[in-house]
Design a protein around this nucleic acid. Structure first.
Lengths: 163, 163
DNA sequence: CAATTATGTCAACACTGCTGACATAACGGT
DNA sequence: ACCGTTATGTCAGCAGTGTTGACATAATTG
C-alpha cells in the first residue's frame, strides 16, 4: 500500500523518512538525558559532570588528554568541571608511571556511587527498549548509529579499544 | 563462541550491551549536531535557534505553546531565542484566527534558507547511514528510538499528528 | 640543552536553561 | 458586562557549558 506512492514520488517519501529520523534522534536524546539532568541539578552539577564520571568509570586510569579526545571539548572546558569533581572527591588523580606528566583519572567510591545512580536509569531505559524491540532491531539500531557518527568515532568504537 | 560466556555470565554481557548502547547514542548525537553548531556560530546563533527553525518549518503556523511542548523548555528560554529570530526576520508571526491570543509562527524565506542549510547536512548523514545499514536496520533503529523516548513523545510520534 | 608535550589556570564572552515576578490581551462562562 | 483563565511576552538574575587567548609548570625527547 506504500507501493503507488513510492512509484509516483519516491523522493517525497525519502525526505519524510529523513525528517522522521532526525526527530527520532532528537526526542530520544532529549528524554534520555532529562532524568539525569534532574539528579545532577541536586548538587549543582550538569551534564558535563556526568560525561566525565561516565568515561572515567568506563576507562579507569584514563589520562586527561584521552578524555579530551572522547568529549571533543577544550581543556579549559574540561578543567573547570573536572577540578570540581576532584575537589569534591568524586574523581581522584594519580601521576602516570610511564609518563609522569600525565594525570590518570579514577572514580572514588563517592564518584562510583553517583555514576551508578546517573547511569542506571539510562541503562534501564535501554534495557526496556531493547527488550521491546528485539535482537534484530538492536542490531539495526547499532548499524544506524555507527553510520551517523564520524569515521573517527566509528573506528574507535569498532576496534578492540586501546586506552 | 559467545555461547559459553552467555551461559556462565549472561548479566555481564547484558551490562556491556547497555553500556555500548549509551555510547552509541552519545557519539552519534555529538557528531550529528557538530556541523550545525559550527554553521550557527557564524551568526551568533546556537542549537536552540536551529531547533526552533526546524520545528517551525515542520509545522508552519504552529502556535508558541505547541512549540514549547515540543521543545520542553520554559517560555522564557524560548522567548529569548525566538524574539531574536523574529527580530532578524528568520521567523514571522501572525495572530491566530480561531484564537487571536495565539501567535502563529512561520519561516520567512530567509528562515527557510537557513533551516535548509542546517538540516540538509543532517539529512545527508541519515541518508548515508540508512543506505549503508539497510531497510531492516532502519526499522530496528526506529523501534529502539521510540522505546527510548518518553511515552508522551512516542504517542505524538505515532499518532497521525494534530497541530 | 632546546623543543615539544601534558596539563593547568585566569579571564572574558556567548549560548541556553531555570526561577520569580509582573503585564497585556483575548477567551469563556456566568 | 464581569471575572477567572489562558496565551504570550518581558525584565532580571543565576548557573552550567562551551569558546578563545594568554601564560605557566613539569616532564619527555631528540
Amino acid at each position: 500500500m506504500a507501493e503507488p506512492k513510492t512509484i509516483v514520488n519516491p523522493l517525497f517519501l525519502r525526505e519524510d523518512d529523513l525528517r522522521q529520523a532526525i526527530e527520532l534522534l532528537f526526542f530520544a536524546y532529549r528524554d534520555f538525558t532529562a532524568r539525569g539532568d534532574a539528579i545532577l541539578a541536586r548538587q549543582q552539577f550538569g551534564r558535563a559532570h556526568h560525561r566525565i564520571l561516565y568515561f572515567v568509570g568506563r576507562y579507569p586510569g584514563i589520562p586527561v588528554g584521552d578524555l579530551l579526545d572522547i568529549l571533543n571539548i577544550t581543556k579549559q572546558s574540561l578543567s573547570r568541571v573536572l577540578s570540581q569533581l576532584v575537589r569534591e572527591e568524586f574523581v581522584s588523580q594519580k601521576p602516570g608511571t610511564r609518563d609522569r606528566r600525565q594525570r590518570l583519572l579514577y572514580l572514588t567510591d563517592k564518584g562510583k556511587a553517583l555514576e551508578r545512580e546517573l547511569t542506571s536509569e539510562q541503562r534501564m531505559r535501554f534495557a526496556a527498549a531493547y527488550k521491546d524491540a528485539g535482537a534484530v532491531a538492536v542490531e539495526g539500531f547499532r548499524k544506524v548509529m555507527l553510520g551517523i557518527m564520524d569515521a573517527k568515532a566509528r573506528k574507535r568504537f569498532l576496534s578492540p579499544f586501546e586506552t
